[in-house]
Computed example of a mutant assay.
Amino acid sequence: MSEGTIPPVIPAREHPVIAIDGPAGAGKSTMAAHLARRFGFLNLETGAMYRALAFKAIDNDLDFSDEAALVELAENTRIALEPQLEGNRVLLDGVDVSRRVREPDVTAAASRVSVHPRLRAWMVDQQRLLGRRGGVVMEGRDIGTVVFPDAEVKIFLDAAPEVRGNRRYRQSGPAETKFTEQAKATEEAMVRELKERDERDRTRAESPLRPAEDAVILDSTSMTLDEVLVAAEKIVRDHVTEAQLH
């Protein structure tokens, strides 16, 4: 660029990126789906991308600690998210794996796969492509800190692990089994699993789980679901104009 030349103006996104981060079981997916419906945005669940790759790693009998093999697998993988009313449809190499990637073994594998720096870098590139034009709600663990540090709205949704474990447990299994000794042991196991996952996510070298400096921290420990969703809507409206929302 010659001296005195005015640098080109890079237009701002027409619509904002809403970044929702937080630990496992905090309710990020529920919040993201609600905000996407409320404002007419696309709901891009980035955690589903990690779970899809983890499922493929399981299917290929890969060692979750072998970063090079996992990166090679990723580079030969196509993951697509198709937002639906009830959550994303997840396509892995053209095959719908939406139900399979929600199962416990895949969720646990995704937590182990996601610790690798090179794999996370590959995922971040994919996620930026999906959200580059704005008008999206993206939830995960490093959206506001790494994927879109310039996101117009950043929410860090948290809750005590005991509360997150209880909520997750209540969402699974028939109601009549909730009060047995076996049920109590299962709920306690879920809480332990969440605490272990929190430790992995918060202490990993690459993109550890933490709030962005400009994120609004929303602790839902003592809140009802309706209260959380109302609070989230207010945070969005406090950070962007009405024109950006329509």
Results as ranks from 00 to 15, higher is better:
219 D>W: 11
178 K>D: 15
78 R>W: 00
68 A>D: 15
37 R>G: 12
164 R>Q: 09
121 A>H: 03
55 F>Q: 13
65 S>W: 08
69 A>P: 00
62 L>I: 03
19 A>R: 00
57 A>G: 10
46 T>I: 02
95 V>Q: 06
195 K>T: 14
233 E>H: 09
218 L>H: 08
88 N>R: 08
35 L>A: 01
194 L>S: 01
148 F>G: 06
116 H>P: 01
46 T>S: 09
112 R>H: 12
200 R>D: 12
49 M>F: 04
69 A>K: 06
218 L>T: 06
74 A>L: 01
50 Y>D: 01
58 I>M: 13
84 Q>K: 12
230 V>C: 14
45 E>M: 05
180 T>R: 09
86 E>Q: 08
235 I>P: 07
104 P>C: 12
150 D>F: 05
147 V>P: 00
100 R>N: 08
15 H>Y: 08
52 A>H: 02
183 A>D: 11
69 A>F: 09
158 D>N: 12
114 S>K: 05
171 Q>G: 09
46 T>H: 03
244 Q>N: 05
12 A>K: 09
118 R>L: 15
48 A>W: 00
8 P>V: 11
83 P>E: 04
118 R>D: 15
47 G>T: 07
178 K>P: 07
94 G>N: 04
131 G>Y: 11
227 E>T: 04
244 Q>T: 07
76 N>P: 05
15 H>T: 13
184 K>V: 11
226 D>W: 15
97 V>G: 08
92 L>V: 05
211 P>W: 03
168 R>Y: 14
217 I>T: 07
239 H>W: 07
70 L>N: 03
175 A>K: 15
41 F>I: 11
167 R>G: 02
6 I>W: 04
50 Y>N: 03
38 R>Q: 12
232 A>V: 07
150 D>N: 03
74 A>Q: 01
37 R>T: 10
38 R>G: 09
200 R>H: 08
94 G>E: 07
123 M>E: 10
151 A>C: 03
1 M>E: 11
80 A>I: 10
137 V>S: 07
85 L>I: 11
204 R>C: 07
158 D>I: 03
116 H>N: 00
200 R>Q: 10
125 D>C: 05
208 P>T: 03
93 D>S: 05
170 R>S: 15
116 H>G: 03
89 R>I: 02
169 Y>P: 08
50 Y>I: 04
52 A>Y: 00
203 T>H: 06
9 V>K: 14
200 R>T: 02
47 G>L: 02
228 V>R: 03
75 E>F: 02
40 G>V: 01
131 G>R: 14
23 P>N: 06
58 I>C: 10
105 D>V: 06
15 H>P: 07
88 N>S: 01
182 Q>H: 14
4 G>T: 05
25 G>C: 14
24 A>Y: 09
51 R>E: 08
218 L>V: 11
144 G>D: 03
144 G>I: 05
87 G>C: 00
5 T>R: 12
81 L>V: 02
134 G>Y: 01
